[in-house]
């Protein structure tokens, strides 16, 4: 079972991701905001991290930078409303592996998660 950390503040999106990823046979942990995520990241190791960029307390960017500093090999997928090129470029420059924009297709997301998990 792969451990996935989902960092997201929209209750509806959380439920859907949790439902879908658990159905795919993953061990899913949820962080509802950046601060909670930071705490989880300090004490745990994950096989994959799925994060939003606009989060309460701590931004997605700060989380990404923290993950890249401490566990650079953990793959990161960003799930964000932003479609602006510069925001996406910034995320890739910080080392994220994939960028999915909202509205998202849960099936496609599940595929991309699987692909990254196999690669690593």
């Amino acid at each position: 079972m792969k451990k996935i950390l989902v960092i997201e503040d929209n209750a509806m999106v959380i439920k859907s991701l949790e439902f879908k990823l658990k159905k795919d046979g993953n061990d899913v942990t949820i962080a509802h905001d950046g601060r909670e995520a930071m705490k989880l990241l300090k004490d745990n190791k994950y096989d994959l991290i799925l994060t939003d960029l606009m989060l309460p307390f701590v931004t997605g960017n700060e989380l990404i930078s923290y993950i890249k500093k401490n566990t650079p090999d953990t793959p990161i997928i960003v799930l964000s409303t932003s479609t602006q090129e510069n925001i996406i470029m910034d995320a890739f420059n910080m080392g994220v592996d994939d960028f999915i924009t909202k509205p998202f297709s849960p099936n496609e997301l599940s595929l991309r998660v699987k692909r990254l998990l196999i690669k690593n």
Partner: peptide
């Protein structure tokens, strides 16, 4: 400052 950084706005 950390809280200001989390504002929802594209740019």
């Amino acid at each position: 400052v950390r809280s200001l950084l989390t504002i929802n706005y594209p740019s």
